[in-house]
């Protein structure tokens, strides 16, 4: 091999490595650019509308047989709220827990667990899909959210139902929100039982939202208050949910 050949090879290798490095650095700068990120988020309404177009308002999530259930349903997110008031309720078996229903409603409610337990319950064996990628199949039972919203006389001005929760991540309270289509969907329930037992603290006792056509972070646990709203602006971080505010997860989590 002549020195010239070695030189050329080194040069070519250098050019290749340099181009690769520049490309990576350039890509990184593009990916980190906030306006690029904002432009890509411009596709969110397209995701939402096409999802609604294909699946409609009433299509049901798949329901499974008891034999399909996960042997172990993993707990995720907060598994024990820090608040002393919550822990006192837990110690007392949630006997004094009250669910507040307010906002754009004709008749604000405060329902005790005993009252909620008398409402007609829907039982469904469904799949829980975490945004991370895993899935677990479990059995949930509780009143349909629609029953409670009708009882409270939710206003036609309401566009979102917000769930205020008892758990928090540091200073940020957990909350979630869904639109009226999912709020009135027949499989949207406030579960007070899971796998034929009272809901455990790890899974969100005493009340957990099941909104079966969306990902796990929408399934708010430890629900204290259900609020009907016209807009999500001005509420906590303004993006409609804890993970939406804290880490930029999409508000519509049907994908």
């Amino acid at each position: 091999m002549t020195p010239l050949q070695i030189g050329r090879r080194k040069l070519l290798g250098g050019i290749a490595a340099g181009t690769g490095g520049l490309l990576l650095a350039g890509c990184d700068r593009i990916v980190a650019n906030p306006s690029v990120n904002a432009a890509l988020r411009g596709a969110d309404p397209l995701h939402y509308r096409s999802q609604r177009l294909i699946s409609g308002s009433h299509a049901l999530a798949q329901e499974f047989a008891a034999s399909d259930m996960s042997p172990v349903f993993r707990e995720n997110g907060n598994t024990m709220p820090e608040a002393a008031t919550y822990q006192a309720h837990a110690a007392g078996g949630f006997a004094d827990w009250a669910l507040v229903v307010d906002g754009l409603v004709a008749r604000p409610l405060s329902l005790t667990m005993a009252q909620i337990a008398t409402l007609p319950a829907r039982t469904q064996i469904t799949r829980h899909d975490c945004v991370e990628g895993w899935s677990a199949i479990g059995k949930w039972s509780g009143p349909q959210l629609a029953t409670i919203l009708r009882q409270a006389g939710v206003s036609s001005r309401a566009r979102y139902i917000v769930f205020h929760c008892a758990d928090n991540f540091g200073p940020a309270q957990y909350y979630e929100s869904i639109d009226m289509i999912d709020a009135f969907h027949p499989q949207t329930i406030l579960a007070l039982r899971m796998n034929d037992a009272p809901l455990s603290v790890g899974h969100g006792a005493p009340l957990r939202l099941r909104v079966e056509r969306q990902l796990g972070y929408k399934q708010a646990k430890y629900i204290m208050r259900v609020e009907a709203r016209e807009s999500l602006a001005g509420l906590y971080g303004g993006k409609g949910g804890y993970w939406e505010d804290a880490a930029g997860y999409q508000w519509y989590a049907g994908i």
Binding site: Q51, I54, L60, D129, G133, S135, G254
Partner: peptide, 24 residues
């Protein structure tokens, strides 16, 4: 097939691929 909402509207895909985790 990994979209929980499309699973409701296009349940045939779930059948075709043998479930969401198989599809993944």
């Amino acid at each position: 097939t990994m979209s929980p909402n499309l699973n409701a509207g296009l349940s045939l895909l779930l059948e075709l691929f043998g479930g969401r985790q198989s599809a993944r």
